[in-house]
């Protein structure tokens, strides 16, 4: 059986809020290492990969591999019934028909119990190769969100061009063009504003802004975001969570003919 207790319901609320417009029905794969999810959007252009390691929970117990097939719209409806600061416990049997959620208020003596009916989901699972990326950019997640939002008003696509010490986001649209450049920036006083660009070779790739704007819904999960790029491979957008857990998005590039 599965029993996983989260100190704060907000983590799961934010994860589901961030991915539910991209993927609808997903298997949450539970085993002794934690709870994982991999799902592609309908067009097979973007992929969500979530890992909540067992250390994220306290306690965490899962004796067997259990796949919880959940409709994210339903999941969100139930998670909205939890206060951000509530303690959240997920429970399921070994061959479950439902997943149970218990929300406990740390301040009040209130316990809320919900069940969500599970579904059988036959999901395509992609093998993602370990990649040494040519460019890794770490930047404030809010900054990345703003860039994507601003440029999406002008164009459907953005070119991300990484070169030594600088990364440039460029778009060309019907009404005009836009370009935002960021340089390596490190401040002891405001480390949350740091920008770090690691580069082994220059990279230039074009991506759909519609998907990037969607990924940025995860900005509330982490103050910083990591963009990993190599020429001719999908972009990795990673939000790191506590205890080595993560929410990752992959996006296939737009490629010239």
């Amino acid at each position: 059986m599965l029993e996983a207790r989260l100190e704060q319901a907000s983590i799961l609320k934010k994860v589901v809020d961030a991915i539910k417009d991209l993927v609808q029905d997903c298997n949450f794969d539970c085993n002794d290492s934690g709870i994982a999810l991999q799902a592609m959007d309908n067009s097979h252009v973007a992929l969500v990969s979530m890992m909540l390691k067992s250390d994220t929970f306290s306690p965490f117990r899962c004796d067997r591999n259990i796949a919880l097939g959940i409709n994210l719209n339903s999941f969100q409806k139930v998670l909205r019934c939890a206060q951000n600061e509530d303690i959240l416990t997920l429970k399921a049997d070994d061959s479950p028909d439902v997943v149970s959620l218990v929300f406990e208020s740390s301040e009040q003596d209130r316990i809320s119990e919900y069940d969500i009916k599970l579904m059988d989901i036959d999901q395509e699972h992609l093998g993602i190769p370990d990649t040494e990326y040519a460019a890794t950019i770490t930047m404030p997640s809010g900054e990345f969100q703003r860039i994507c939002r601003d440029l999406s008003a002008l164009s459907e696509s953005v070119a991300i061009e990484a070169e030594k010490n600088a990364v440039k986001f460029v778009c060309n649209g019907d009404i005009g063009n836009g370009a935002i450049s960021l340089r390596n920036h490190s401040s002891v006083e405001k480390p949350e504003q740091n920008v770090n660009i690691e580069l082994s070779e220059p990279v230039a790739l074009t991506f759909s802004l519609k998907y990037l704007v969607n990924f940025c819904k995860a900005s509330g999960l982490s103050g910083s975001v990591k963009l990993c790029l190599s020429n001719e491979v999908p972009l990795l957008v990673e939000y790191e969570l506590a205890s080595n857990s993560y929410l990752r998005f992959y996006l296939a590039p737009k490629i010239g003919d």
Partner: peptide, 14 residues
């Protein structure tokens, strides 16, 4: 204009 690729081109089915 460049065309949108899909992930199957890069990642193998498991």
């Amino acid at each position: 204009p460049p065309k949108q690729a899909t992930l199957g081109k890069f990642f193998g089915l498991q």
